[in-house]
């Protein structure tokens, strides 16, 4: 069990006229090695939830355990937690600050209190993992890079801490189709490298259906359903109630059904759709 959340409730600005409850009794178990997608419309509590995983938000009520770190403890080991859970925020390129790419990426590992040698090693590895040329970018200012490169540098800054759990908030927002594919491929690569557990908040149903093992659907601060993409994206009642859209593969399947052609399976990824179609065609 890598993450265990029990009955998490959170209210912003409690006891004021601005009080807003963002989470109501959320419980979730995430096993090591799972690729979890978090979906839900704006304001459904997704961001508040993932910020809890890194103790960026103080617990109000409920329990959270990340591996053996108990966030309910009086003084949880925050350094260890932040080295365990790597958080890539929305538009991470806006958090770059240092003079050179190398210095910026080394900020996280340095905060963990590692040795200079270890830091240099991790920074080089992280920059290369995100697909940049270490020798070429290390002394450049992060502000003179292109948008896509900046995002890579920012992600490198998080993975240089070698987190076992990688949490990404809208990692592909605002990127062109090619940039999206590159970042999604990068996440897969990182999952295999040393972050076996990945949690992604996304509004892009295609990428969620394509990549995730499980999907947590948030609605009004609660988890409406935590299940496989197949179970969620074929549940029309659930999707319309939570105002969610289904991925294009599912739309194709539904259109085929409308035309009187039913498939033997219920595909959610492109590969599954092709397989289902070829079986149906008897090719």
């Amino acid at each position: 069990m890598s993450i265990e959340v029990k009955d998490l409730t959170y209210t912003y600005s409690p006891n004021t006229p601005y009080a807003a409850t963002a989470l109501r009794g959320v419980s979730l178990h995430i096993e090591e090695g799972e690729y979890v997608g978090i979906i839900g419309k704006t304001g459904s509590g997704k961001s508040t939830f993932i910020q809890h995983l890194n103790a960026l938000i103080r617990l109000q009520s409920g329990e959270i355990k990340v591996y053996d770190i108990d966030l309910n403890a009086k003084k949880p080991d925050l350094k260890k937690l932040r080295g365990t859970v790597g958080m890539v925020m929305q538009y991470p390129e806006y958090q770059l600050f240092d003079e050179t790419v190398e210095k910026d990426v080394s900020y996280g590992p340095r905060n963990l209190g590692l040795s200079e040698e270890e830091i240099r090693e991790r920074v080089r590895e992280a920059i290369e993992l995100v697909g940049l040329d270490y020798e070429e970018v290390r002394d450049r200012s992060p502000f003179e890079l292109s948008g896509g490169q900046k995002r890579r540098v920012a992600i490198a800054g998080v993975i240089a801490m070698r987190p076992r759990i990688l949490v990404l908030d809208e990692p592909i927002a605002g990127l062109d189709p090619r940039g999206k594919q590159e970042i999604l491929a990068l996440i897969k690569k990182l999952k295999n490298a040393y972050s076996p557990t990945v949690i992604v908040v996304s509004h892009d149903m295609d990428s969620v259906a394509e990549n995730c093992d499980k999907v947590a659907l948030f609605a009004d601060g609660e988890i409406a359903r935590f299940a496989s993409p197949r179970e969620i994206f074929y549940d029309d009642e659930l999707l319309s109630r939570t105002e969610m859209d289904c991925p294009s593969v599912v739309k194709v399947v539904k259109e085929l059904e409308r035309l009187g052609k039913s498939l033997p399976t219920r595909p959610v990824t492109k590969a599954e759709l092709v397989a289902a179609l070829t079986v149906g065609e008897g090719v």
Binding site: Q51, R82, M89, P92, Q95, Y107, G108, N111, M161
Partner: peptide
């Protein structure tokens, strides 16, 4: 937001 992002990096 920036404070949160840098805290997440161990600040």
């Amino acid at each position: 937001k920036i404070i949160l992002a840098q805290k997440a990096r161990g600040a």
